[in-house]
Design a protein around this nucleic acid. Structure first.
Lengths: 382, 382
DNA sequence: TGCATCTATGTAAACCTTTACATGATTCAT
DNA sequence: ATGAATCATGTAAAGGTTTACATAGATGCA
């Protein structure tokens, strides 16, 4: 039995869709195939543009043009080249191309922890968009280690990556100190805006989202609403707290400082904050949490105290992480459009690379209210 | 105020640790610095090996050697080169190097969904190990789309990646059909072994882990133990079921086929399976689930039916995903060493790239029993 | 017909390394 | 003192593209 698909051909198949016209039907009779092809497969030595040129009877420049700027080449020639490409299984060597063009079509993504589900889902969006546009995605898991952050910049400086996506909320350690003297690489921040630097940001509208969440609670009749997760260090937390305050203000509800508790966004801190409220015995009818993880902590605390949720207390989170729908009671929350955030951020970065300056310094996407079972009208109204 | 750290210098800092000896202390007086440096920064044109050679007064070959094989160069010369490198802020151009050396020091990771927390945590391990060894990590999110799988192979065929990590459980679509005629790239499978192909595998020991889990239930006195998540399609499920059977057999408990239910590993399927048991009214005292997501479904079902857990039923999962500790009752489960799996898999792949054939076809890591609150002695014993 | 313009292709340089081989200096053993 | 061996460095080729510029033929227009 004669098997005709060569590895190289196989690999070149989907390649950038350049060779759309190539035949995928019958195999040429083996002994009409140029000898060079078989050797190249056996010896792991891939076909080069020269092999294609020789087979097509044109110069390498023409081959290059036929592939990259098809309109600049005569129809007949283009056909010959396309055919030769198919026969040899040629794929353009990305290294040589990058060396020559001084761009790698790669994007470096710097994140503190790719394992964080909030990050990894944005990552999917980033990757999807990049791949659609012919870019590859390189990941750097910094674990908040300054050394590693700096280290990853070698991908930029060595031309291995053209642009940078930052999850970290700050420039890589030590970066940008020279006050604009040196141009920074194309960058877009995601998840957390970069402080003290002019980096375009794509993320959820935290202020607005939190406002909508608080409004939802208010619309259910709540007036004593606690906010768990105050923290001045992160923009996310600050904005969400401000949204909460705005909603209360708009409803003419005075903001009670005893209703605003600290937290660092972890489940444990949510639990601790709820416990703290019981110790002080200043109880709200609803908890608005800075994120779902915190809300989970609150729920655990309340469940442990044998409260009946949501009859006794209403709880809202923010993010809509996967288990929000599984916890009891299922959590009413604001859904972050993570996929869209990733796609939009990558879109912006690629536009930047093509020399288009961003129209606005930040793109804010709406969070969506997801109503589940953790909110009801407050007990004293029933 | 004079700021002396140039962007290029900054970027070259951590770079592969080659220039360990370079000074990081006082800045040279600005006007003793060669003019070229400033220009190169301004014009975004990075220093090349030639610039370094000129400054150090040696040939480019010597510079290359001083950087890559320091022992082959005289001490004095090495010092001169190191100094010139520091002054120019030289970083070796990865593209040129890769082109010449025909290796990119990049690894391509193919995963169906990077957003899956099970995957993303292995990913962290992969990345950590790769980075430690000077490799970069390229991700391909295939979404189980055959076209995308094939498409990503261009990274291999174009020399942009040297090796491949497969999360997918199968070779990229259409790959390897030519029956060994063409050599496949260096590959290691993770999470799910590759069927019908000789690809080294690194993962958790599912059989043994599941056996330990079942043993744990048996040791608590359970004899009617259901297994939720039977499925012949995936190796993971098969092995976990076999571990369950082995434990029962060893304890001389007959395996009741009515106690083995289908499931596809989702929370919904776990819920459905539990419901199914109640409809048929063939009840176990404990549920051993193929994974935590399934176990969560079972718990939801039982909670909804107002059972008191774990008094009425014991539940065990497998994986130890993040919320396992937050659900009520907190889930007793087998913890997958995800980080370690990633690290080990990458280690194996890099060894493979260095020409060392793997000693064994698969590396199995032990799962760890995590005891929480979802298991107690069965009710009829109390 | 003659000249300008356009189109299709080819030539060769540039992108920046690594490394086989050559060279010359130094050391060592005889 | 001589030849061999070792060491440090330099020369130049090779790796595979893209593209500015040159060339030659075709086309258009007066």
């Amino acid at each position: 039995m004669q098997i005709c698909i060569s590895l190289a051909q196989l690999m070149s198949r989907g390649s950038k869709g350049l060779l759309r016209g190539s035949r995928r039907d019958g195999c040429p009779n083996p002994d009409t195939r140029p000898r060079g092809v078989e050797r190249s497969v056996q010896h792991q030595k891939l076909a080069t543009i020269e092999d294609v040129a020789a087979l097509a009877g044109v110069s390498i420049a023409t081959v290059s043009r036929a592939i990259n700027e098809p309109t600049k080449v005569a129809d007949a020639t283009r056909r010959k080249v396309t055919e030769a490409v198919a026969k040899t299984g040629y794929t353009t060597n990305a290294m040589a191309r990058s060396l020559r063009m001084r761009r790698s079509n790669m994007i470096l993504i710097l994140a503190p922890d790719v394992g964080d589900p909030n990050f990894s889902n944005i990552l999917v969006g980033l990757e999807t968009e990049a791949s659609k546009r012919g870019y590859g995605v390189l990941i750097g898991n910094t674990q908040n280690d300054p050394t590693r952050e700096t280290d990853y910049l070698r991908f930029i400086s060595s031309n291995q990556a053209d642009g940078l996506i930052l999850f970290t909320g700050h420039l890589p350690y030590g970066f940008g100190q020279e006050g604009g003297e040196a141009r920074l690489p194309a960058m877009v921040a995601v998840n957390e805006p970069v402080a003290n630097a002019d980096v375009p940001f794509v993320g959820v509208d935290n202020f607005e989202g939190s406002r909508v969440a608080a409004e939802h609670l208010i619309s259910q009749g709540h007036r004593r609403i606690a906010f768990i997760g105050h923290s001045t260090s992160k923009a996310v937390n600050m904005l969400r707290e401000q949204g909460y305050r705005a909603a209360l203000q708009a409803a003419r509800i005075e903001v009670d400082p005893r209703m605003i508790l600290d937290g660092d966004g972890t489940t444990e801190s949510g639990r601790a904050a709820a416990e703290h409220m019981f110790v002080r015995d200043v109880l709200p009818s609803a908890f608005l949490c800075v994120n779902d993880a915190t809300a989970l902590g609150v729920i655990i605390s309340l469940n442990t105290r044998k409260y009946d949720l949501p009859r006794d207390f209403s709880i809202m989170g923010f993010d809509d992480i996967s288990f929000a729908s599984f916890v009891t009671p299922a959590l009413t929350t604001m859904k972050q459009p993570r996929l869209k955030i990733g796609e939009k951020a990558m879109d912006l970065l690629l536009a930047l690379l093509e020399g288009k300056p961003p129209k606005e310094p930040e793109v804010l996407l709406r969070a969506e209210l997801i109503v589940r079972n953790s909110v009801s009208r407050p007990g004293y109204e029933r």
